[in-house]
Design a protein around this nucleic acid. Structure first.
Lengths: 199, 199
DNA sequence: GATGAAATTAGTTCAAG
DNA sequence: CTTGAACTAATTTCATC
């Protein structure tokens, strides 16, 4: 498990939202300089956390393609195979593989094509049952989980919802807090700490 | 269904590969000017074909994230409400709303949190049943399908795999071909066409 | 629609802390 | 690991075709 600090987290969130956002813009958000942001992004790529910058397309807009959702009950021994095989299929956009050996995929293909494809690709050894249903609407909001990457307010310990605030104290350290009153608080705490050190 | 010409298609492919590629670079590939590429990308965004520039992350690298998949059987009259409400929830990454009034969502949250959330948000009027299951693996494959977007070689009609080549004849028209021999061929054809026209 | 030239804005390199 | 300054590169605007 790679160590990411809260700044990396913010950078990733900003890039998830808009991968063409300028490093200057990101730098302002995290209160660092553009070269530093650039260095951190390079590091995130080197670490393999950022796999690539890409573009999310709405394929239903240009293909006269339908979307459908496929739920596959696999035999537990073959669940992983099925999951891997699905990813090779052109038109399968998302696939999820659950603890109960179900594989759920969203395909940008008409249901009939999916039926045909699956007859070809999946064997009865692997799959006990599957069903295909047309999707009326789908949404996708790429994000981090709140677990493990959650930023906690440095003052009150609550998780920071929304944007929060970032405070830079005189030492140059950054603190992420949930609201303006915690931001005031941290400045006050730092000040009293510094005065104590001076005495 | 939106009309995309072959240049749009090439632009989209290049952006899928690397969304931070410069417009200059793209402009060279498609033999147009940077402002034109910029205009076309703007148009693709306006049309909703490009939904967002984003970043593909390897979550396994850092996450002690739990993901889970929620399947909700809704009362048909409330299916759309449920779908909309889900999207507001922080941690819901995908939501799909199918013709049989099932809403499937993938949350980047531990199952217990999802249970708690849903108790709050969803009423028994809306939902007849739902169940939550942990996700072991999930994948996203940002790619074109072959349906509707395939580029064919102007000479031999084969689909263009890999990069292909783009040829600009004297009239200024662009042709996309699969290989250098088809590129030669199109120049030759254009030349003989022009000579015939002169006579 | 597409372009080239000018103006603006962004990214990178590097010496230094 | 970070920065500011200098430099290089990319993007946008706009007049023109």
């Amino acid at each position: 498990m790679v160590e990411l600090d809260s700044i990396d987290t913010v950078i990733l969130e900003l890039l998830l939202e808009d991968a063409r956002r300028s490093f200057r813009d990101i730098a302002e958000e995290v209160e660092l300089s553009p070269p530093t942001v650039s260095n951190r992004v390079d590091r995130l790529r080197d670490l393999g956390i950022i796999q690539r910058f890409t573009v999310e397309l709405d394929r239903t807009k240009f293909a006269n393609e339908d979307e459908c959702l496929v739920t596959i009950d696999t035999h537990p021994d073959h669940a992983n195979d099925v999951f891997s095989q699905l990813q090779e299929i052109d038109g399968i956009e998302h696939a999820f593989y659950t603890v109960d050996s179900t594989v759920v995929a969203k395909a940008v293909l008409p249901p009939s094509d999916v039926q045909a494809l699956f007859a070809d690709v999946l064997s009865s050894e692997q799959v006990s049952d599957y069903h295909v249903v047309s999707v009326l609407e789908s949404s996708w909001k790429p994000q981090f989980g709140t677990t493990g990457l959650n930023i906690e307010c440095s003052i009150c310990g609550n998780s920071i919802s929304g944007d929060g605030e970032t405070v830079k104290v005189e030492s140059g350290d950054l603190y992420h807090v949930c609201c303006s009153s915690c931001a005031k608080e941290i400045s006050a705490q730092y000040e009293s700490f510094r005065q104590a050190a001076d005495e």
